[in-house]
């Protein structure tokens, strides 16, 4: 026999899926929404996405170089954070502020806690919340700089209009022909990506189903049109792409149900009783904070374990 044998630990057979494949599948699933954003809101939307992704990747690499860690921007996770942050920005948002948001998302939301896998909160949402606090004016200015929405008659988002007592047409909401953040308005585009991720079993169906379901049920109970509630604001984007982040959602199935239903309930609370028109970011961040408790409370039963008899 020539050459030494390789001695690895069992199992010697591994599933072909990898973390990078998962991340790139998520990026692929975000492309329909990105296209919709550019079509609806013009080239500036594209610039926002590019700047945000570049800033996120650059920041991640910088942090890792500074900490003398291997640079892992090729795994796609920083790009996802950057793209999701851009999706959460108004179409006319200044590029330099977007870069700042991506920087904060990576530093404050991810690297400060130890990088991929260790962050308690969704990094993109951290970036969004930082921007909402730092630039409240710019974050609530709804104006398309180009694209289909350039000559929109209104400068309010559907949820803003609802607060004023006007309900937009459902077909417009589904296509995304309304004002709002770049990646959140087109329900159809989000569903295309979301269904792809469900089919690839990359996201757990319990999270979108639980979150959207609880919003629908609670809206009905509060006398609102559930379809309009589901297709407005950042709910669809949040339910399919933000709440499903594996790192910041529970590891158990019952935990994921509670997580999702809780997030939906908080969205309804904020929308119907809060001062803000929209609360998807805060609802997910709040449930992110509850995640460790959910993991503990819903620990799976070990096969053969007799509880409460020991």
């Amino acid at each position: 026999m020539n050459g030494k044998l390789e001695v690895r630990a069992a199992p010697h057979l591994l599933d072909p899926d990898s973390t990078a494949k998962i991340m790139y599948s998520v990026l692929l699933a975000l492309i329909p929404s990105a296209l919709a954003g550019v079509i609806l809101f013009g080239v500036h939307a594209l610039w926002l996405m590019l700047v945000s992704v570049a800033a996120a990747c650059f920041t991640e690499a910088g942090c890792q170089l500074l900490l003398r860690q291997p640079v892992t921007i090729t795994d796609g996770s920083a790009a996802i954070t950057g793209l999701l942050l851009a999706f959460n920005l108004p179409p006319s948002f200044p590029l330099r502020y977007a870069a700042f948001g991506a920087f904060m998302a990576i530093v404050l939301g991810k690297q400060l806690f130890g990088g991929l896998g260790e962050n308690p909160f969704n990094p993109a949402l951290i970036g969004r919340v930082v921007l909402a606090a730092a630039f409240p004016q710019e974050m609530t200015t709804w104006q398309a700089l180009g694209g289909v929405m350039a000559d929109a008659a209104t400068t309010a988002t559907p949820l803003g209009l609802i607060k004023l007592g006007q309900v937009p047409a459902l077909s417009e909401l589904l296509l995304g022909n309304v004002l709002g953040c770049i990646g959140e308005t087109s329900v159809v585009a989000i569903l295309i990506g979301g269904i792809y991720l469900l089919w690839r079993k990359i996201i757990d169906w319990r999270i979108p189903v639980g979150m959207l379901g609880s919003v629908a049920v609670l809206s009905v109970l509060l006398g609102a049109d559930p379809l309009v509630q589901l297709s407005t604001g950042g709910l669809m984007l949040g339910a399919f792409f933000m709440a499903t982040d594996p790192v910041t959602s529970p590891v158990t199935k019952p935990g994921r149900w509670i997580f999702a239903i809780g997030a939906g309930a908080v969205v309804v609370l904020i929308r119907f009783f809060g001062g803000l028109p929209e609360g998807v970011s805060y609802s997910i961040l709040l449930m992110n904070a509850v995640k460790p408790i959910l993991n503990k409370a819903t620990k799976p039963r070990i096969f053969g374990e007799v509880r409460g008899r020991a």
């Binding site: 973390t19 991929l116 896998g117 594996p246 590891v251 799976p300 039963r301 070990i302 096969f303 374990e305």
Partner: peptide
Amino acid sequence: VRQTRCIRCARCVEVCPMGLE
């Protein structure tokens, strides 16, 4: 085999026949 960091995807929890994490 390139080992990367755990992203808490919980696939291991799902497949464990003993109900471990």
